[in-house]
Design a protein around this nucleic acid. Structure first.
Length: 196
DNA sequence: CGCTTTTGACCTGCGC
DNA sequence: GCGCAGGTCAAAAGCG
């Protein structure tokens, strides 16, 4: 048990990051997975660096980071409050390395049955997309059901770091993630996936 | 012995 | 201006 936390000189320097600039720069990609385990082995090595209880969800949200140096890809894992069996994984950023150091199993979602995927840039498109025929959708398309689906699975954003501002994807909610589940997982979507 | 996990504290931004 | 929620850090413990 983390008994004594002796010298806590500088803790929590992160938060929302720089002032004035929202640190939502990396492309994000979220997908739902029907699994009993949260930490799906996608072939990369992840290190858990945090866990926080979510406001509208009885389940905590876990924060992972790619252990590979110079790869600042982050991953957020949380269970759906609507359906505990559904795990929502949100990737932030893209891997600089094609193959994980040491491990090369490829994408293995043990027990996971991906239900849907949203976002802008899947970390391993081939893995999730082809392997499970996931309907890649934009984040915004879920909130705003457009008559015609987006032509390309990957929205207009350059991997160099510049992507379409969140404001464009979320005209209504321009700030704060405001619940990944709420925004990314419409109730009907979850239910639909279950009933299939 | 090294890496991962756990957990509380701290910081920042936004909403009211 | 204050409070809340989200996100990150850092140290210790646990495990392989």
């Amino acid at each position: 048990m983390r008994a004594l936390r002796a010298c806590r000189s500088r803790k929590g320097g992160g938060g929302k990051g720089k002032k004035g600039q929202k640190r939502q720069r990396e492309p994000r990609f979220a997908f739902m997975t029907k699994s009993d385990i949260e930490h799906l082995d996608d072939g990369y090595r992840w290190r858990k660096y945090g866990q926080k209880p979510v406001k509208d969800s009885p389940f905590p949200r876990s924060y992972y980071r790619c252990t590979t140096v110079s790869c600042g890809v982050k991953k957020r894992v949380e269970r759906s409050s609507a359906d505990p069996t559904i795990v929502v994984t949100t990737y932030e950023g893209q891997h600089n390395h094609s193959s994980p150091a040491g491990h090369h199993h490829g994408a293995r979602l043990h027990h996971g049955k991906p239900l849907a995927a949203f976002g802008e840039s899947p970390p391993t498109p081939q893995h999730y997309n082809s392997a499970y025929s996931l309907p890649l959708q934009r984040l915004g398309s879920l909130q705003q059901p457009s008559p015609s689906p987006p032509p390309a699975p990957y929205p207009p954003f350059n991997a160099a770091g510049g992507r379409v501002p969140r404001e464009e994807l979320f005209p209504g909610s321009s700030s704060r993630d405001q619940g990944l589940l709420q925004d990314l997982l419409p109730q009907n979507f979850v239910r639909m996936s279950r009933e299939r």
